[in-house]
């Protein structure tokens, strides 16, 4: 298993949102997270990315194997498309940015400043960033926002290629990506019922 989560409980702003969550992700797996707004998808992904701590439970993942893509793309508007990708490649200690440019058809845009891109083009650049990190597990938060059908297909192809190479992807999304191999995980049954976030808030009562 590349990523395994057992009996996880997470909270947002001190209020528990998900509990008792367990799942595992192996090489070649695509797991799609479903659930209504506010059910804790983003919080779960941020927890897996290590940006916040779980209330309880275990997350087992090899260090430096995971890359996170949030709602915001992390694109510098004054840098060109190539410069943006090169920057992130350097941060992750990688060299080659060509596969990323090809996978998301960014070659015609390569020398344009990212600030001049449309929302959908920016998103494509944001997703291309995943390819330059060289990380095996993609943790994606609503990756298809503002993408057209053609770009969604590009993205699906990129995910398929990635998992075929032994990668894995965990995707929170509302739309159908056309990935037949993807497993669905509905978060609705894991919504937190417990009222106290931890023993200390309980001890205030």
């Amino acid at each position: 298993m590349m990523l395994s989560v057992s009996d996880l409980m997470i909270s947002r702003g001190g209020i528990p949102v998900l509990e008792g969550l367990s799942f595992a992700l192996g090489a070649g797996d695509v797991l799609v997270l479903r659930g209504p707004n506010g059910c804790g998808k983003t919080t779960l992904l941020r927890t897996l990315a290590g940006l916040q701590l779980p209330v309880s439970g275990r997350i087992d993942v090899a260090s430096e194997s995971l890359v996170y893509a949030a709602h915001a793309d992390g694109i510098k508007t004054t840098l060109t498309v190539t410069e943006n990708l090169r920057f992130w490649a350097q941060v992750f200690g990688q060299e080659n940015i060509m596969p990323a440019i090809e996978a998301f058809h960014l070659a015609p845009l390569a020398d344009r400043p990212a600030g001049a891109l449309s929302a959908g083009q920016k998103r494509r650049l944001g997703l291309a960033r995943l390819l330059v990190t060289g990380r095996a597990i993609w943790v994606l938060d609503e990756p298809t926002v503002s993408l057209d059908a053609e770009a969604v297909a590009m993205f699906a192809t990129a995910v398929r290629t990635h998992v075929a190479d032994g990668g894995a992807a965990l995707i929170a999304t509302h739309i159908d990506l056309g990935l037949r191999e993807a497993r669905l995980l509905d978060l609705e049954p894991y919504r937190a019922r417990a009222l106290a976030t931890d023993d200390f808030d309980g001890s205030f009562l």
């Binding site: 996170y68 915001a72 992390g74 941060v91 200690g93």
Partner: peptide
């Protein structure tokens, strides 16, 4: 401020740096 707004700060925090 800029890195916070465009999300780079989150991404940098999850990077190997």
């Amino acid at each position: 401020a800029l890195d916070w707004e465009d999300g780079s700060l989150d991404l940098l925090a999850t990077s190997p740096l």
